[in-house]
Design a protein around this nucleic acid. Structure first.
Lengths: 289, 289
DNA sequence: AGACGGCTGTACTAAATTTAACAGATCGGA
DNA sequence: TCCGATCTGTTAAATTTAGTACAGCCGTCT
C-alpha cells in the first residue's frame, strides 16, 4: 500500500479554518465533530446535515485542495483504514505529521475528561435537577452564590450567567470579612448555591451551615467524596471530577451549571429575552465613549 | 434519532457466510478484512478490490437483506459513528434497561456539550498547544490574563490555577479604568492570555492590540468564528462552543485551560511540588484563627 | 445613497453510479 | 456426452450524483 500523506484532512481543515467563509466553516465543523463520517456520505447528505447548500460543500473541499469530491472521500477512507488498523483504535487521530503516531498530550487528558463527564451525568438524579431548577427559577427567592478558593471561578460563572436570567442574585466574593453581613438577613426564603470540592474549605462550610440553620435552602455542588455540607443541603450534586492529572477537572461542574442555565433560559424564554434586551440597551447607554 | 439495530453488518455476514456463493464469499471476506472501509466505496471500487464483478456485490448486499446499496452504506456509517464516538455518548443511547426511558433534560444538553468537546479537540493543533505551553512555562515571561464580560470566569479559572504553578501571573480585573496601567510596562517579554468569544468585546480587543503593538506575545482563546484578535495573536485556539442552548458552552475552553495546567504541572512536577508546599505552609501561617 | 465585491443558494447539465436484464460459463448427474 | 441448474460477468437503462453557471443578497466602502 502506498504511504499515506501524513497530513490528515482534519489537520488541513484546522490549518485553514480562518480562511473559510462562515458557512464553509459550519460544514467543516460538522465534519470535525463526527469525523470522518459526514464526509463519507454523498454531497447532498453532507450538505443537509450541515444545513448548508450543496455547492458550499464542494467549495469547501475544493479549498482544501481536492480537485474532486471523490478524491476527498478516498482520502478519508485511507485515513480511516490506517486508523482502524492500528491497535490504538481508540485514539482520535491526533497523529501530527512527524512519523510515529504519538497521541498529543492534550488528547489523553481530553479523553479522561470525557469519561469523567459521562460518569458525572449518570450521577445526577433528574428529580434533583428539577428541584434545583425550581428553586433557582423562583424570582421571589434571592440567590446567593459562593465558592471556595479554586472553585470561585465556578461560582463566578454561575453568577454571571444567572444574573442575565433573573434578578436578586448575589456573589459572595473572597473577602471573608464581609461574609457576616451576607448572612445577617438570611431567612427560609433564601437560596444558596454552594461549590465545595475536595479539601473542603472550612469557611465555605461554615457559611453553608449558618445559612441552613436560618432555614435557607441549599443547593450544593460537590465531588464524589461529598462535602460535609451535604448533610444540610436540600439538593446535592456529587459529580466525578477526578481525572488524569494532578488537578481535578471543573468541566463536569461547569457543564452542570450550564445545563441549569440552559434549562432556566429555555423554560422562561419570553421573560428572559425581554430582560436581556433591556440589559443590553442599558449597557449601551452606559457605554458612552 | 432512530435506535440502531444491535446486529452489525459484520455479524450478519458471519452468520450467513456458508449460504453465500464462492465469489460472494470472496467479497464478503474482503469487507470483513478491512471492515468497514471497502463497503464505503462505490460498488465498482468494492468489486474491483474484491476482484469480482459489479453485480456480485449487489447480490451480496441483497442477500444480507438490504434493498439498496445506499441503505447498506448508511448502515455502515451509522455503525462507524457509534463506534468512533467517545465513551460519553456510547452509553446514552445504548442499552438503557427500561425501554424507551425518556432522556432527562440535562442529558440532551450533556450530549451536545460532549460533541462540542470532541470537535474542539480536533480543532487544536498539537504544535500550537506546545507553543503556548512553552510560553506559559517560561518563568521569565510575566503572564497577564484577561477575559470579557462572561468569559471572565474562565480568565479567573486560568489565573487561579496558573498561580499555583508559577509566579508572575496577573489577572486584569473588570475595572476598565486600571487597564492603562497594566499596559504601561509591556514589552516583548510579556505574555498575554486572552479570552474573547462571540460578541467580541471592544475593550478586550484593544488591550490585545496594544499589547501586541508593544511586542507582547498573545495566546488567544476564541470560538469558531474567530475574534479579530486572531490577527495579532501568536497562538490561536479556536474552539467549538456552540451547543444546544441559547448560550455558548464554556466547557471546551475550560478543558483547554485544564489541559494546559495539567501539562505544565506534569512537565515540571518537582518545582511545582515544592512551590505548592511552600504556598501551603504560608497559607497555614496566615490563617490564624 | 449608490456601487461594488464577496458569499450563498437555486436551477440546471453532464457524468458516474446503481440497478436490471440477459447471455455465457461452469459444474454435477444421468 | 448431454441436460439442467446455478453461478457469474457483460451490456444497457435508469436513477442518482457531482459539478457549473447564474442570480440574489448582504455588508462595505466611497
Amino acid at each position: 500500500m502506498t504511504g499515506l500523506p501524513h497530513t490528515t484532512v482534519a489537520e488541513m481543515i484546522r490549518r485553514r479554518l480562518d480562511q473559510l467563509t462562515p458557512t464553509e466553516r459550519k460544514a467543516a465543523l460538522i465534519l470535525l465533530g463526527n469525523y470522518p463520517v459526514p464526509g463519507l456520505q454523498t454531497v447532498a447528505q453532507f450538505a443537509k446535515q450541515a444545513d448548508v447548500s450543496n455547492p458550499t460543500i464542494l467549495r469547501l473541499i475544493s479549498k482544501l485542495g481536492f480537485s474532486a469530491y471523490a478524491d476527498f472521500q478516498q482520502r478519508l477512507r485511507d485515513e480511516l483504514e490506517a486508523r482502524l488498523r492500528s491497535p490504538l483504535t481508540k485514539d482520535i487521530l491526533g497523529q501530527d505529521g512527524k512519523g510515529a503516531a504519538e497521541i498529543p498530550a492534550f488528547a489523553k487528558y481530553w479523553e479522561s475528561v470525557s469519561s469523567a463527564l459521562a460518569a458525572s451525568m449518570h450521577l445526577i438524579r433528574p428529580s434533583e435537577f428539577d428541584g434545583a431548577i425550581a428553586l433557582l427559577a423562583d424570582d421571589r427567592r434571592p440567590v446567593t452564590i459562593l465558592g471556595g478558593r479554586l472553585t470561585s471561578s465556578l461560582a463566578l460563572q454561575a453568577f454571571l450567567h444567572l444574573r442575565e436570567l433573573r434578578s436578586n442574585v448575589t456573589l459572595i466574593d473572597s473577602q471573608t470579612a464581609t461574609w457576616a453581613e451576607h448572612l445577617l438577613g438570611v431567612t427560609a426564603s433564601n437560596t444558596y448555591l454552594l461549590f465545595d470540592i475536595r479539601r473542603y474549605q472550612d469557611d465555605v462550610i461554615r457559611v453553608g451551615q449558618e445559612a441552613a440553620a436560618r432555614g435557607a435552602k441549599i443547593i450544593l455542588v460537590t465531588d464524589e467524596w461529598l462535602s460535609p455540607l451535604s448533610a444540610v443541603a436540600e439538593h446535592v450534586f456529587a459529580l466525578r471530577i477526578a481525572v488524569n492529572s494532578n488537578w481535578d477537572s471543573f468541566a463536569p461542574i461547569s457543564v452542570l451549571i450550564e445545563a441549569m442555565i440552559a434549562r432556566l433560559s429555555a423554560q422562561r424564554w419570553p421573560e428572559v429575552k425581554t430582560r436581556m434586551e433591556e440589559l443590553e440597551s442599558i449597557r449601551r447607554r452606559l457605554d458612552t465613549r
